[in-house]
Amino acid sequence: MIYRKQFLKDTTITAAGIFCVLLAVLVFTQGINLLGRAADGRVAAEAVAALIGFWTLGMTPLLLVLTAYISILTVLTRYWRDSEMAVWLACGLGLRQWLRPISAFTLPLAVLAAVLQLAVLPQAERHSREYADILKHKQNLSLVESGVFRELGKKNGRVYFVEHFDAEAGKMQRLFLRESRPDGGDSVIFARSGHFDLRDNVRTLVLEQGYRYTGAAGRGDFEQISFDQLRLALNSPHKPAETAHRRTLPTAELLRNPAPQYRAELMWRVSLPISLLLLGWLALPLSYVDTRSGQSYHVIIASLFFLVYQNGLTLLRDMVEDGKIPFLAGLLPMHLLMGGCVWLLLRMRSMPAMPFGRALRQALPWARPPK
């Protein structure tokens, strides 16, 4: 049909523009956030671009939901303003006949969102965490500056001071290092020189020609040990950070694991593609505009529906995660509620000339047909 082709053309062009705008805004916002964290040392500077890419990929399913909803709402609103929908209804055709072209537009996006949610994003999340952890780890261990006290790793309260550092040769001259011991004492090391060594993915600080003092201040029990070479392991063989996090687990493993947090993650992965389809249908009755009033209250109502839908899914996911409700009790209610709203609003908007209250009463399933 001609109207289907025109609708798909209009929504595709509109969706492309909306997706680009939303993506640009989100990437710019997240980029500023990551740059600020990199400036504070919480994120490795080299990882900013890669983390923006991983974060953008993770946000793509939600962007697809928003894009489909806004583009359908925008195009159909224009049809109502241009009286095309009024002509459609005057010809004896119903709004339900628009569900097929809307589904033809939203179904590929829902399939894409499902593939991303169920297969691609868990792997991307795992690689993102590994990459950020490795770069942050290397940055903390390799950031050496002459004449400045710095932390060495995140354990034992290690603090070091280097009087002179040759960046090209990687050699440090006249080092001071202090660390806390498990028994409450301190260990202080003075060395003539030193350098970092990396073998089997284990970072080691090699100190040469120095002394080590161990003991507790005020007890008078310090011990002095001289050494020609002392090797301090700064980390164990590196393991990817949080590889068992629920967001990094494959969907097949979530299906096999009955733990509440994994059930909640599975519910969220399944919910977004379903919500994309339902919001596409919901945009059809919400796009109605009374051309004589010139008001745009439908935009506010459409925004409220989206917020209620997404916040409701988030609330139910948290309840599933806490073990308060089972998986199906978290997955089904909001989708059934939105499906019921689609059915009810379609019946109402098929009677645009009728006042809102009367149209609502007539749309209810138990309402009597007008005499």
Results as ranks from 00 to 15, higher is better:
22 L>Q: 08
202 V>F: 07
367 A>F: 06
298 H>G: 04
10 D>G: 07
306 F>E: 08
2 I>D: 06
136 K>L: 14
117 Q>I: 03
140 N>P: 01
163 E>V: 00
237 P>Q: 01
145 E>P: 00
230 L>T: 04
239 K>Y: 02
300 I>G: 15
42 R>Q: 13
188 V>R: 05
166 D>G: 06
285 P>D: 01
307 L>E: 14
188 V>F: 09
303 S>D: 03
117 Q>A: 15
276 L>S: 08
341 C>D: 01
220 G>D: 15
256 R>C: 00
366 W>S: 08
73 L>G: 07
80 W>C: 03
196 F>P: 01
63 L>Q: 12
256 R>D: 11
6 Q>Y: 12
36 G>M: 13
304 L>I: 14
15 A>R: 12
79 Y>K: 10
298 H>Y: 06
295 Q>T: 10
65 V>M: 15
195 H>S: 05
229 Q>N: 08
9 K>N: 07
364 L>R: 00
245 H>F: 04
19 F>T: 10
365 P>A: 07
1 M>W: 06
39 A>Q: 12
323 G>V: 00
97 Q>W: 10
97 Q>P: 00
227 F>E: 10
360 L>V: 09
256 R>E: 07
198 L>R: 09
116 L>P: 11
363 A>Q: 09
73 L>R: 10
355 P>M: 01
263 R>H: 05
305 F>T: 03
236 S>P: 06
273 P>I: 13
296 S>R: 14
96 R>V: 07
33 N>P: 00
189 I>R: 08
125 E>G: 06
44 A>L: 02
74 T>C: 11
168 E>V: 15
40 D>L: 10
317 R>M: 11
111 V>Q: 01
194 G>L: 11
4 R>F: 14
189 I>G: 04
169 A>L: 13
81 R>W: 02
328 L>V: 14
360 L>P: 00
158 R>F: 02
322 D>C: 04
242 E>T: 00
96 R>W: 05
266 L>Q: 07
118 L>H: 03
73 L>F: 12
96 R>M: 01
191 A>T: 00
248 T>V: 03
309 Y>T: 13
179 E>I: 05
105 F>N: 02
